[in-house]
Design a protein around this nucleic acid. Structure first.
Lengths: 224, 224
DNA sequence: ACCTGAACACCGTTCAAGT
DNA sequence: ACCTGAACACCGTTCAAGT
């Protein structure tokens, strides 16, 4: 069990598939689905592909760029069907909810994506569809353009914040306790609003938030 | 220059200050201000404090918890003065803008904070002040309670997304190019809206976004 | 109780050298 | 041109052992 590193396991594998960007990204997505984004390391990925970590840099620039590629691959499973016409608002909320639900499973990816400007085909399709729905709702183009960013940023950061994986340790309990213990003197408005702050289920709050965002976007003109 | 690790440097330093949580967090904040959050590692922090990394775990639970503490320390420099009465909306936008500007300098911290539920005294003060301003604007308590979360999440994720540090490599250029090259056939709404998508300065878009959010929060009733 | 040396179990990325 | 072994320069966290 000691001794030199003998790559015996490599012989046990199917047959070394030729590498390509698609194969690398696909393997990365598979690892993320199985074990979470935190296990998608260059070393683990290389192992899975029967090569060394250095080889991956032929196909991806770096970790951040790989995360962007994983996102786009993940978005392939999102349906962009906008269904029956005349209900642009419901369709908008539905699409945003499905995008959020998808990212909810991978909060680490959401966190990473937040500091990227994704530009993959599926992400562009998402933006395009959202713009189309806002247009169907007769939202002025300038508000729609800025609004799409607000909507996607909200969806992504919601996934990053409340995501479902074990990584997410700190619970709202800490805040709840902190505020319970606090004298109403010091934080009177928190004390007064306490019940409302923790009320509602995740989906209820999310539904409300999307609707509030859409309301604001449609009703707030861009200056000038 | 080879040889054993002789901690000569420790003798050169002022005098080993007694450790405490406050000293640890203060040193962490100082490193972040000087070199960015990515340099705030347990090892660097320990070095700075003339001790080993293991010793820090007497005062902080782990990295995530330390980030929460750094945030609260950073928020100490935020002024919560709400100025003249009768202009709750302007004061709300002003406070949110100042919070965003502060976090803008430390996008890594913003990213980290997004998956925390901060509960430090300065963060609670911020929440309390925001709730007070919404109350002054006669916003129903339930909408205000849910709305504060939306506002803070937007501010924090904006800082995480567009932050100013070098870490942030991917520029909107990638997207701009991607969309310029795209045939208007495939993404008609993006092509149609292209000019509007990249228009405006950061502050203009931020100002608009905060106002749209506030509009939505004030005008969208919570169901039931 | 408080503190820490040393280890455990990893990282991303680069680059000289091979084919 | 494409690929990679090996190294560089680090990480967070734990724990047995000291005081």
């Amino acid at each position: 069990m000691s001794g030199r590193r003998v790559p015996v396991s490599r012989r046990d594998r199917p047959a070394k598939a030729p590498l390509s960007r698609a194969v690398v990204v696909g393997a990365a997505l598979a690892i993320m689905r199985a074990d979470g984004l935190e296990k998608v390391t260059m070393r683990r990925l290389a192992d899975e592909l029967d090569t060394g970590p250095a080889s991956l840099y032929v196909y991806v620039d770096n970790m951040a760029e790989l995360h962007g590629a994983i996102l786009d691959e993940l978005l392939a499973e999102l349906s962009f069907e906008t269904g029956a016409p005349g209900q642009w608002r419901e369709q908008l909320v539905d699409l945003l909810s499905r995008y959020t639900t998808l990212l909810f499973q991978y909060p680490g990816l959401a966190r990473s994506v937040l500091s990227l400007w994704p530009s993959g085909p599926h992400y562009l399709r998402l933006i395009d569809t959202l713009l189309g729905l806002l247009d169907a709702g007769l939202v002025p183009a300038q508000q729609a353009a800025w609004g799409v960013n607000v909507l996607l940023q909200h969806a992504t950061s919601t996934a990053a914040e409340h995501g479902t994986r074990a990584e997410n340790k700190t619970s709202p309990t800490a805040l709840t306790t902190a505020v319970d213990d606090v004298d109403a003197q010091r934080y009177p408005h928190i004390a007064r609003t306490a019940a409302a702050l923790w009320s509602g289920t995740g989906p209820q709050r999310q539904q409300w938030a999307f609707n509030a965002l859409i309301d604001g976007i449609t009703s707030t003109p861009v200056p000038e």
